[in-house]
Amino acid sequence: MKSLKSNLKEKIYFLKLKSGDSEAFGFFYDQYVGQIYRFIMMKVSDVQVAQDLTQDVFLKIWQHFVDQKQMLNFRAFIFRVARNTVIDYYRQNKQNNVSLEQAEETPDENVALEKQLSIQLETESLLKVLETLKPEYQEILTLRFVEEMSFDEMAEILQKDKNNIRVTLHRALSKLKQLTEKN
């Protein structure tokens, strides 16, 4: 949870950024670069690609301000931009990479993974289990538990209704628990 003061500071910088303050942009870069890199890295698993896409995200954010478009919640917005950037990346590299859609759970791998999980369920293992889930579930679990986002923010990022998010999250958690408990 962010402190009241850091929240306040972020709001001030957000308004400054809206008035075209480049220093405020520097503030947001420092605040979010780690989170955005992690979010993208979890999706692309390649340092170079994650770095390039992270840089793209920040350029897009700046361009958004240059174009004087509206934005209500910076955090939700930057994650939405990051998500769309990754989707665009997969679309452009369809032939060479495994796409998000293709990265569905595969039963054979699950068996092996489940065996591995039965020995130890540590963070790395959880990550591997997470990777076997549908991209939709992976995304929703990451946003909720790794990035600690509210339902409002998730609804804005994923462009879905809050109730829909709740239901999907519930299903994702059940699926994850099912996979982990089996072991």
Binding site: V33, G34, Y37, R38, M41, M42, T54, T123, E124, L126, L127, L141, T142, F145, V146
Partner: peptide
């Protein structure tokens, strides 16, 4: 889940 944040490979 919270520990995922701390994994080295996700550090910038």
């Amino acid at each position: 889940f919270a520990n995922i944040q701390k994994l080295d490979k996700f550090q910038v």
